[in-house]
Amino acid sequence: MMVFMVLAESLSLLLFVIGLYGVMSSKVGIKMLISIEILVNAGVLNLVLVAGSSMQPIILALMVIAISAAESVVGLSILVAIYRKFGKVNISLLKEMKE
């Protein structure tokens, strides 16, 4: 059981790092959205792992799934608005403001 927990928590951390790397390295909006999904799902996996006999983390995990869906909807609509304005969903187009 102990070995399983360590392996599973490492898996969720690995997913988290993959998601973070995807967001930071990619310039394409859709790719970043998918990476964010991986990032959030790493958290959901970890929530389910630490639950034990308690229901609270499971409830939070279900909430997070719903929230991340809502978040993707908003993200996609922002990307659609950007596509209509620029003809591309490349985030690197958006640098009118200086860094």
Partner: peptide
Amino acid sequence: LEASAKYFFTGAVSTGFIVIGLSYYFQ
């Protein structure tokens, strides 16, 4: 749109951090 996109992507990443932070907090 630039403001919104930047806000969204950093905000979504911060959500990921908070979720995993909460799971460790429960542990």
